[in-house]
């Protein structure tokens, strides 16, 4: 197992994902002899996990579930939140718009809980590199530990510093820069320094429009081009079968062809497959501002 390479079977030392139900997943560090408590009962790693195929069903005393191979997307749902995190919808769009691919050199700040970092690493492996800067020391240490556990540490350098003061710690190497910090405008200059002479792509994520306004100004001042701000929202459709009763207009004395085509007398109903949207859904995550650094 690694976050950048599939395996077929669960091994000691892997990180596996217990898929308990929709939106309820749980990461587990697989260790010979260890046990994990789930709401369906205890699982014994040695017998229930190690040597089993990823995707297998595990049966406990109170129910069953599947063990899945980790992916950055499952990790985003499962990871311990140490900060607000970026979710898959934004991540997917960022990945495309930053033109990430195997071999890309990327700078990121802040690392936060590492949700985006894992997705970046997946995409730039096996030949790219991520330079990620996190202001908060404990968080920087924790995420570095996770990268190791997820066997992607060879692809990433974690720096514990203030990106607005100290920059990314690299010069002229990045194809892409991602900013998710309170005052991205203070880091735009550092981003430019970190980027390749030929140019590259930048993205800044901010929840508030005032942050976007200041960032766009800074980007323009620093000579960035093609500055554009976009918002992407996910709508999840709930599939269901519903039954709609038919009205009873009473006996039809005329029975002409025109009269009430579909009215059925005995409170019949029609069943149909449809979807509904959740009553409440995420209405905003943040604005994504993209820009191109030209050749300098």
């Amino acid at each position: 197992m690694s976050f950048v390479e599939y395996s077929d079977f669960i091994q000691d030392g892997d990180v596996a994902i217990l898929y308990l139900s929709h939106n309820n997943v749980m990461p587990v560090k697989v260790q010979q002899g260890a046990q994990t408590q789930t709401r369906y009962g205890v699982i014994r790693h040695s017998t229930d996990l190690i040597g089993q195929r990823y995707g297998s069903k595990v049966t406990c005393s109170k129910g069953w579930f599947h063990v899945l191979h980790p992916t950055p997307e499952l990790w985003t749902v499962a990871l311990p939140h140490r900060t607000q995190i970026l979710y898959t919808t934004d991540i997917a769009f960022i990945t495309m718009m930053l033109e990430l691919k195997p071999g890309s050199i990327v700078c990121e700040s802040g690392t936060g809980s590492g949700s985006l970092s894992h997705a970046i690493l997946r995409t730039i492996a096996p030949t790219g590199h991520l330079h990620t800067v996190e202001f908060h020391q404990q968080r920087a240490e924790k995420v570095a530990e996770e990268f190791k556990e997820h066997r992607v540490d060879h692809l990433v350098t974690v720096r514990n510093q203030d990106v607005c003061k100290d920059g990314f710690g690299v010069t002229g190497v990045a194809d892409a820069v991602f900013l998710d910090i309170p005052s991205p405008w203070d880091a735009v200059g550092h981003a430019k320094v970190a980027m390749k002479k030929h140019g590259g792509r930048l993205c800044s994520f901010s929840p508030c429009i005032e942050q976007v306004q200041k960032t766009c100004e800074a980007l323009q001042d620093q000579g960035f081009e093609d500055i554009s701000t976009t918002e992407v929202l996910l709508r999840e459709h709930d599939v269901r079968t519903v039954s709609l009763p038919l009205p009873d207009f009473g006996p039809d004395p005329e029975t002409t062809e025109e009269a009430t085509p579909a009215a059925a007398p005995n409170h019949a109903s029609i069943t149909l497959k449809t979807t509904t949207l959740p009553r409440e859904m995420p209405g905003h995550t943040g604005y994504l501002t993209f820009a191109t650094k030209p050749r300098t």
């Binding site: 508030c208 429009i209 949207l277 009553r279 995420p282």
Partner: peptide
């Protein structure tokens, strides 16, 4: 001031 954005939750449909 400095915190203008769409509400974080919205009605689905």
């Amino acid at each position: 001031p400095d915190r203008t954005h769409p509400l974080l939750l919205m009605s689905g449909g």
